[in-house]
């Protein structure tokens, strides 16, 4: 009986510790992260690198602070172009919901599995999409197709009878 009770207690503890949604960090990782310094305790270099996060820093969980401090450590090894991109996207990234960040990470891992040709095609597609107007973007989301460029529109085989009616 005692063994069974211990087994059940262990299972419950395991379930409680692992019962976090995929968007949230695991409970064990949250508990295991020691307290991280507040904004005023950061070094000057860390403050310069993490400047876009200054207003959010003191409200961040320890686990996110530690991650950003890790990125700040990697920062000097990045190219100037990459450094500019990271700093430009930092604030926007931090303001996303945990679910959006988790989704983006999953998609990015999937993206990295693609062949170079597919990656290039995807980038070109994104380039086209990002230049669309908001209305056209909504249309793409609904139809899952890029609108045809104006120059490529040809006279359809069947004349648009309904649109001609009002005239």
């Amino acid at each position: 009986m005692a063994k069974n009770r211990r087994l059940i207690a262990g299972l419950i503890l395991g379930l409680v510790l692992s019962s976090t949604s995929l968007a949230q960090p695991p409970t064990t990782a949250i508990i295991g992260t020691p307290p991280q310094p507040g904004w005023s305790l950061l070094s000057t270099q860390q403050k310069i690198i993490l400047a876009p996060l200054a207003s959010d820093w003191d409200n961040m969980e320890n686990i996110r602070r530690k991650k950003w401090l890790g990125i700040a450590e990697r920062f000097p090894k990045m190219s100037p172009t990459d450094q500019a991109k990271v700093q430009e996207r930092m604030h926007e990234w931090a303001s996303l919901t945990p679910a959006q960040r988790a989704k983006a990470r999953d998609s990015y891992k999937e993206f990295n599995q693609l062949t170079p040709e597919k990656k290039q095609a995807l980038k070109e597609k994104w380039e086209t999409y990002s230049n669309l107007s908001e209305e056209e973007k909504q249309q793409v989301k609904q139809t899952k197709k890029l609108p045809r460029p104006a120059t490529s529109t040809t006279t359809p085989a069947n004349p648009p009878a309904e649109t001609a009616k009002p005239q």
Partner: peptide, 9 residues
């Protein structure tokens, strides 16, 4: 940290 730094750059 690894994924985020790659994703952001």
């Amino acid at each position: 940290e690894e994924v985020d730094s790659a994703l952001l750059s």
